[in-house]
Write a protein that binds this DNA or RNA. Structure first.
Lengths: 132, 132
DNA sequence: CATTGACTTGGAGTTCACTCCAAGCGTTAA
DNA sequence: TTAACGCTTGGAGTGAACTCCAAGTCAATG
């Protein structure tokens, strides 16, 4: 599969695909006789995987390291596993924090729902009491 | 309270505090006779609130709009509520996506745990089957 | 009275993650 | 055979969100 199609398939610009490959965020894609990238199924899986992980906020640096380890072969599986465990923990923490913030927003919206508009109530929307 | 202390309290640089105020991400902070910012309790609540919302990924633009509405007074409560509801929905979606990715990481790590290292297994770590 | 330290301002600089550009090449269509 | 198309490359440009800087003010200290 060529860039144009991959670009459409994953909604990433061709420039972004080239950029990801250039910085090692996805492994190199083989070229045909004319030097044109031909994405294999494996390449496509990498693109999808990286897009998913980036969307979840995993740092580019960590993902580049993961790709590097992958390319070094089977003796890096332990290191890769540790990397994933670390990133999972970071992600878990981010989700936890965001879930707390979501609850705080719920509470704030709830307060607006009560039709309050007095000064002290207005201010209370900013206090931490509403998340406690 | 002065900048230095606020900066320590919330782990935001003084430059960032000034920047947030400059772009309207927090309402203006009153100055004393010498032109120096004196943060009130309300100011501190705003700083904390904005930091929390930014950490959760709410867009700066939306938060500036929220602060603007707040400063326009009580007749904007409905608009503020709608803004918060919209942002809550966006946040909910982000959390959902990230939770799916977390499950995918769990599954990937699980696979590494089985001590597999054959080619086809290696590749399977990239497939979507592991999240299904 | 000079220096130090904490602040002020406007504006320039930095980093990240793309995004765009110019020049060039190989295949297809007229 | 000329043109268009889709790709190639290295490198420059962009926007967001800070981050830093220079020049200046004011109050307190030696």
């Amino acid at each position: 599969m060529r860039m144009a199609e991959v670009s459409l398939k994953f909604d990433l610009t061709q420039d972004t695909l080239r950029y990801y490959e250039r910085i090692g965020l996805i492994p190199p894609v083989n070229r045909n006789n004319n030097g044109i990238r031909e994405y294999t199924e494996d390449n496509l899986r990498w693109v999808e995987f990286i897009k998913c992980m980036r969307n979840a906020g995993l740092p580019i640096e960590a993902l580049i390291e993961y790709v590097n380890l992958f390319q070094q072969g089977d003796h890096t599986t332990q290191a890769r596993k540790e990397l994933l465990i670390e990133q999972r923990e970071q992600l878990r923490l981010r989700i936890e924090e965001m879930t707390n913030t979501l609850a705080r927003l719920d509470s704030k919206i709830e307060n607006y729902g009560q039709g309050i508009n007095r000064k002290e109530k207005e201010l209370s929307r900013l206090t931490e009491t509403e998340i406690g």
